[in-house]
């Protein structure tokens, strides 16, 4: 079981993609959520992994399920929800996306390199 949203500098899951890359959640119907109060756990039936997800990461994933977005579009949407400045949310979103990508929860639709 892995904890999401504590991004570290572990290995990338593949070639890094440009900031214009659109992130999508493949087969969101194969993500099973279970609410545990302070946090939620999600089972990814594609990977067989279970992840602990804090509220911000949960929201970010929900937004990407709603519609695929670039990092900056996701930052804008989250900043709007949290009523926080984008400059503050941006780095968090970057870290979350890196971790989601590493765990295979999201996949880049467009690669610009």
């Amino acid at each position: 079981m892995t904890a999401v949203a504590k991004a570290d500098d572990r290995q990338q899951s593949g070639p890094s993609v440009g900031p214009l890359s659109i992130w999508t959640v493949p087969s969101p119907e194969r993500l099973l959520w279970h609410d545990l109060g302070a946090v939620a756990v999600v089972f990814n039936a594609r990977s067989g992994d279970t992840h602990v997800v804090d509220p911000l990461a949960h929201e970010a994933l929900a937004l990407l399920v709603e519609s695929p977005r670039t990092a900056s579009a996701l930052t804008a949407a989250l900043a709007d929800l949290l009523e926080a400045p984008e400059a503050e949310v941006g780095p968090k979103v970057e870290a979350i996306l890196t971790e989601f990508d590493r765990l295979g929860l999201i996949f880049p639709l467009v690669t610009v390199h």
């Binding site: 899951s13 593949g14 493949p26 594609r46 295979g104 996949f107 690669t111």
Partner: peptide
């Protein structure tokens, strides 16, 4: 899927 991601 992981190989696909690793070889984009």
């Amino acid at each position: 899927d992981r190989v696909r991601r690793a070889t984009l």
